[in-house]
Structure formats: structure tokens, C-alpha cells
């Protein structure tokens, strides 16, 4: 078994009296795809925000390859290889689709902030951005302003930005939410391909249980901010806690029934 790439220890955040994430301790391995499931408001997005640094932890620790990154800001964590695709699409609206992705490509370079080198001079970055767009079927929109995209394409661009960042830890937060049925496979295929490479750590928040079952190596269940179940997909989806608290009924009946 490989050493964990990412680990959280007693990770907690408190909003006033409300503990949104409550002492979550778990680890994620390289090459493994972990699905994080739980009802609306369970704390999944908040848990992601703690890991990628958008929210500061009240207590607990986050370790990346054994290094404590709890004290780092979101930019430093991104530079260390934590990538994030947001549940609520977060783009650069008045820049083109290509520029959106290209900014992610550039962020990985040490010359990212170069004052003199022209944006349009970096052929290789331009090509890499186009490759990321190809992966989500968005090349035909490369010149469109992100703000002008239809909703489904915005979701794809959100994912393309993370792909272009080439992080070591990929965090997908309901990547297919709000997409039309025919668009969903593009994203699922992409995640499957990413998983097949075997060298990345993938975290996936997803409500659609059929998706979770087909992609995940492991499922973690959050309930009211508490890690309530953790194991292989078959065991977890069959467990009483998930059937009652999350699915509300038999696991089969909820397959494909996404929300949020």
C-alpha cells in the first residue's frame, strides 16, 4: 500500500455554534478515487474548502505528502499541487474560454508572473490550454467570453481549468451538476481516464449513486459534518447508515437521482 498523498487529522470548522466539519480524520492515496457523499448541507463543500484553503480550519491538520499545509493560504496550496473544480462555477467571466484555461497552465510555471514576456508569445502554453479544452470538448468555444457560455459549457470549463493546472490532488465538487444528460459522459470519461493514469489522487463529491459506484474505489460518507462511513462502494452503499440517513430508502431506488 502506498503512503497517503493527502491526509486530514481531526479537521474541524465551526461557524458560530454550527460545526460544519467535525473532526474528520482520513487519508487519500495516490491512484485512488474517493467519492465523498452525504445529503445537502452535510459539509462536503466545506471539507473541500478546508483542504484547498478557501476556509481556515478551526482546529485539526491537513497533510500533503506528510507535510503540514494547514497554515498555508490557498495560493500556496495550489502551488503544492492541490487542484479544485468548484461546485458553484468560478470562472473569469470577461476573459475568453482559452484565456481562462491558459491562466491555469501559466500558474504552474515559474515564469507565471513575468512582467516582460508577452502573453501571446508562449506557444507551448497555448497548445497545452487547447489540449485541456479538447478533453472537455470545448475547443470550438475557445474565443468565447466565459460569461457568454451556456451553463453546461461553463461546468466543462470549470473542469478544464483544473485539468490545465495539472495538480496532484484533483477535487471535483459535483462536476456534472446541472449538465444535460448528453454532456455528462464527457466529464465522467475524463475522470475515468484520469483515474486510469494511476498517479493522481482524486476526490469526487457526487450525488448520483450510479456514477459513484462505477468510478469510486472507495466511498466516504459525511453526515452533519461527521465522517460516518468509509469503505469500498459495495459495503458502504449497502450499510444501514447510508440507506437510512443519506439515501432515505433502498440504495437501488436512488440510483441516477441527482440533486443539488
Amino acid at each position: 500500500m502506498s503512503a497517503p498523498a493527502l491526509e486530514t487529522r481531526d479537521l474541524t470548522i465551526r461557524f458560530g455554534g454550527h460545526v460544519a466539519v467535525n473532526a474528520v480524520s482520513t487519508a487519500f492515496r495516490t491512484g485512488e478515487l474517493t467519492a465523498i457523499v452525504g445529503p445537502n448541507g452535510a459539509g462536503k463543500t466545506t471539507y473541500f474548502n478546508l483542504i484547498s484553503g478557501q476556509l481556515p480550519a478551526t482546529s485539526g491538520a491537513i497533510l500533503l505528502d506528510g507535510e503540514d499545509i494547514t497554515g498555508l493560504g490557498p495560493a500556496a496550496r495550489a502551488q503544492k499541487g492541490i487542484g479544485r473544480a468548484f461546485q458553484i462555477t468560478s470562472l473569469f467571466p470577461n476573459l475568453t474560454v482559452h484565456e481562462n484555461v491558459r491562466l491555469a497552465v501559466q500558474a504552474r510555471s515559474r515564469r507565471a508572473a513575468h512582467l516582460w514576456s508577452l502573453w501571446s508569445d508562449h506557444r507551448e502554453w497555448i497548445a497545452r490550454a487547447d489540449r485541456a479544452l479538447e478533453e472537455v470538448n470545448l475547443v470550438h468555444q475557445r474565443g468565447t467570453l466565459a460569461a457568454a457560455l451556456p451553463h453546461g459549457d461553463k461546468r466543462k470549463l470549470e473542469v478544464a481549468i483544473m485539468m490545465a493546472l495539472e495538480p496532484r490532488v484533483f477535487m471535483f465538487d459535483e462536476p456534472t451538476a446541472g449538465m444535460s444528460v448528453d454532456e455528462v459522459p464527457v466529464i465522467l470519461d475524463l475522470i475515468a481516464r484520469l483515474k486510469a493514469r494511476g498517479d493522481k489522487t482524486i476526490l469526487l463529491v457526487e450525488h448520483k449513486m450510479d456514477v459513484v459506484r462505477s468510478l469510486a474505489d472507495r466511498i466516504v460518507v459525511l453526515l452533519n459534518g461527521v465522517l460516518s462511513a468509509d469503505g469500498d462502494p459495495a459495503t458502504v452503499t449497502a450499510s444501514a447508515i447510508v440507506r437510512e440517513a443519506y439515501l432515505g430508502q433502498s440504495p437501488a431506488a436512488s440510483a441516477g437521482g441527482g440533486h443539488g
Binding site: S52, Q54, G73, P74, A75, A76, A78, Q79, R84, F86, S90, L91, F92, P93, N94, L95, E99, R102, L103, A104, Q106, A107, R108, R111, A112, A113, H114, L115, W116, S117, L118, W119, S120, H122, I161, L165
Partner: peptide, 23 residues
């Protein structure tokens, strides 16, 4: 119009996203 300049625009457009990319 430098690499730096485009990051400035990114920050204007969406500060949180720019930060999440490592800027």
C-alpha cells in the same frame, strides 16, 4: 499584455479563482 498583465485581469475578474490557481 505580459503574462503578468493577464493575471491582473484574472484578479479583477475573480480574485478567489486566481488565488485558487496559485496566484
Amino acid at each position: 499584455n505580459s503574462c503578468f498583465g493577464r493575471v491582473l485581469q484574472a484578479i479583477r475578474e475573480n480574485e478567489m479563482r486566481a488565488e485558487a490557481l496559485g496566484y
